[in-house]
Design a protein around this nucleic acid. Structure first.
Lengths: 214, 214
DNA sequence: TAGATTGTTAATCGATTAACAATC
DNA sequence: TAGATTGTTAATCGATTAACAATC
């Protein structure tokens, strides 16, 4: 099934909200509850669910535990996924602090950096020289990467990742990267995103695009 | 004019490429050149331009300097914009390192943090206690903010920003924030974005959504 | 039962792409 | 001129929203 990135993002957001709701003892949710929590609409929520054959009860909404386990299954949250980060700078640190990764089945297994000063194989996760990337990734069969290196080495690092066996990346380098058709790249250009908000403020479109799911 | 966030993002990306192209001495570009550079299509490029009345020459494409100055005008790049960051953690540091901000007319004028240890009014930009946010923002008439604080204080910080006069934010807190209709929020949930790539890899949709402009 | 909520179909909306005339 | 490229209109595509029957 072809799935829009936006839909997938929403499914993750539903899941996130359910976990929170569960922690405060809620047992049932309605499409309306979820819509409210995400700034979406009830129809959208039901539509998303119907795409996956997730069903609720006509009068009682969705049973939380049930819904959550269906989403977990769907989103592959029952399996672990290893990730490496290229570039051991502040962005990498910020990601590691985002925390909750481990809880989410995503494990940062190593960082890689050019700068010998930043390297520290004893750290957990280890910070290794770029030269080790190929062997590490191919041996451990890591498939997910993050590109947090300066833009002028980003393509080179990506190429290295690709031959090593990485299948998709989250890219923070502000540059268009070339990759095979079946390779996934999710571009995050933080500066452009900030400039976009700056632009919107300046031109103060009165009937506002005030909510973006990015 | 109502403008899709995606269109604005593309305009910024064109501009970015033009600056690079200019630096290596290129004088003319074609819609095809720009499309290639961004992984877009020539039709898309011309369509975007036509929305703004930007025109080229039938046979010679677009004169680079000319195009660039039109984009600068359009995107408000001839004016400066001040921005504050709430939360002086690694993400804030990463943003400051992104560099090029000043060059882009965006100036980080202050950071704010709860933790007295992190505060340093002598730093450039100054790192101030949250208590100072209201006065600082209203006095300096800052309109743009970044939310880089933990999710459980994000709404509170946003409310504070709003009353202080901020008109839009780039939000890194993984939570749906409530704000007035004419307030701009651009949500960046880095974890969800990474999870999305992880999902796409797992389900390995062969006919790939391999390029995302997020 | 009456009221509330789901699940789905059809309508709308918006963005991207294709087609092509204009013209340098 | 012939060929290449623009600018725009129409077609397509996909996602969101509205409407509403089904039913707990």
């Amino acid at each position: 099934m072809r799935l829009a990135k936006q839909t997938i993002l929403r499914l993750f957001q539903y899941r996130e909200f359910l976990i929170l709701a569960k922690s405060i003892g809620i047992k049932n949710v309605y499409s309306d509850t979820l819509a409210e929590a995400l700034g979406s609409s009830a129809t959208q929520v039901r539509k998303d669910f119907s795409l996956f054959g997730i069903t609720g009860n006509k009068r009682a909404g969705y049973q939380l535990d049930d819904l959550l386990s269906q989403l977990n299954e769907l989103l592959g949250k029952n399996e672990k996924q290893k990730v490496i980060i290229a570039g051991a700078g502040n962005l990498a640190k910020a990601l590691m602090q985002y925390e909750g990764f481990k809880k989410e089945g995503i494990e940062i297994v190593a960082l890689f950096d050019n700068d010998p000063v930043k390297c520290d194989p004893q750290n957990d996760p280890p910070i290794l020289p770029i030269e080790d990337l190929y062997n590490f990734v191919s041996e451990k069969q890591v498939e997910l990467g993050v590109i947090a290196v300066p833009y002028y080495v980003a393509q080179q690092i990506l190429d290295l990742m690709i031959v090593a066996g990485i299948k998709g990346v989250l890219n923070f380098a502000p540059i268009y990267l070339k990759a095979p058709k079946d390779f996934f790249i999710n571009d995050m250009n933080l500066r452009l995103e900030l400039e976009t908000v700056a632009y919107l403020i300046k031109t103060r479109t009165k009937a506002g695009v005030h909510k973006e799911s990015s």
